[in-house]
Design a protein around this nucleic acid. Sequence first.
DNA 1: CTATGGACCTGAATGC
DNA 2: TGCATTCAGGTCCATA
Length: 276
Amino acid sequence: MPELPEVEVTRLSFANRIAGARILAVRMGKPLRWPLFSAPGHSPHDFVGKTVIEVRRRGKYLLLDMSEGMLLVHLGMSGRLVFSGSVLPPAGAHDHFDLQTTQGTLRLHDPRRFGAVVYAESQDAPMSQKLLGNLGVEPFGDAFTTDYFYKNIHQRKSPIKQVLLSGQPVVGVGNIYASEALFHAALRPQTLASRISRARADKLHAAILRVLQNALDLGGSTLRDFANAHGEDGHFQLQAAVYDRAGLPCHVCQAPIRTIRQGQRSTFYCASCQRP
DNA sequence: CTATGGACCTGAATGC
DNA sequence: TGCATTCAGGTCCATA
């Protein structure tokens, strides 16, 4: 479900409401991708009494800084967070984590359970390093320059679509926005990253920022079940140029949008507008 | 080191 | 209707 825009929209929808809250109780459902604690001797009850200081984001992870330690939250493919100031309904079959606080309850709903909630003592803790240590730069950070982008894709031998999905050199671009950015840069997804010229790399760099910013402004994409922590849908999908538009006419040239498989993921593109 | 495919899990849509 | 197959917003891990 969630690429950078959806994760950031989720963060913005509850960060202010949970900041400063004291934790009252924690409830766990079925196991998620990783256990809450990697070291033995801990229990969810340990969180009671700690305070949530603030909510940050790194790539597609949400980082809940607490008065002691932090929670790394990932939404996987089907995860969604809900924050409610009043009492939530009883946990359903797919509600796998509840953080009950003095200011409301944060709940993770995740049918496929590719998501995770992981405790780390700090950013340097082993689990934190494993999950965050090898991420590329933030697209909206100062390090994501055109120079950096060109240099880093130039040494990659894979098709550019798969390089964008890899989280290296830049995080946050998933399957929807990779196809969309390549369309706006007029670049074929199959093009080997190493063969992309400086000028076209610059164009793709700009397209990534433009597409992600646009999706942020529209509240993300709701393909089937994404919603922010208030339950509000996103609207980017209504103006996607290529994603999920197989066989439909290109908005620019009317040629039918094509689908291919790359690394077991669907890619959408316009063979007329996008060139190697 | 880089690149690729499999694995994890559930539900909805499609096809015979 | 019933059952099998395919696909879905991610990414870690083993293997070449």
